[in-house]
Amino acid sequence: MHKKSIIRTEKLCKSFSSGGVMQHVIKNLDTEIYEGDFTVIMGSSGAGKSTLLYALSGMDKASLGKVYFSERNITEFNSDQLAIFRRKHCGFVFQQVYLMDSMSVLDNVLTAGLLTGQNRRKLNQNARELLKQVGIEPKLWNKFPNQLSGGEAQRVGIVRAIINSPDMVFADEPTGALNSSSSDQVLNVLTEVNRKGQSILMVTHDMKSARRGNRIIYLKDGTISGECDLGTYVSGDRERHDKLRAFLTEMGW
């Protein structure tokens, strides 16, 4: 079956200047990210995983090359156009969660929804349903982020990311700051969300997290050194685990 591409890059480059020396983090990268996929970007530390994620999402600007997001060249957008684009088409889940401390759980979610001009009543209903679905009890809805556990906060972060049904959810090490049990809860939520059709692009260096994806892209020195198709995630699938391990071993992980 032919998959529909959501994001496509052409000769994407990203460089940083550090102490007067240019560091080329992403080098002439050509790739596509497909609708409905749970794509995982892996690679060693400093390979450019997060840099690629933020360049693809329009959070950061490419140094050279093009990024087509839903067939629009977002590398030509200015910062305000990118902001407007992000609010409608992207959702973000961060390692450090980044909920707004001064706002309640529910307000954190509603803010993202109201920003796109959603109907307040429907949005409210949707936010409550999603929070329930990710296991955030109503008693927590009016709490502030610093009153939540790390796992709870990250699940709220996921709800905030999907409240606008974005074209793509970008997750940057979403379990990086969580313990094992919280990580599982968060990954389960992401898997469930993906099952319902939400495209996800996740960066991780954790194999357990990577196993949830159906497509693994391995990044090395700013270029894609390999890809692996894992198929649909099934819990306890040993073969899937071995396949991923073999791929990563092959990539020199």
Partner: peptide, 15 residues
Amino acid sequence: QRELGIKKALGFTSR
């Protein structure tokens, strides 16, 4: 700064 960054990530414009 942190909160402003989060808001920008969510899609708030500078204006």
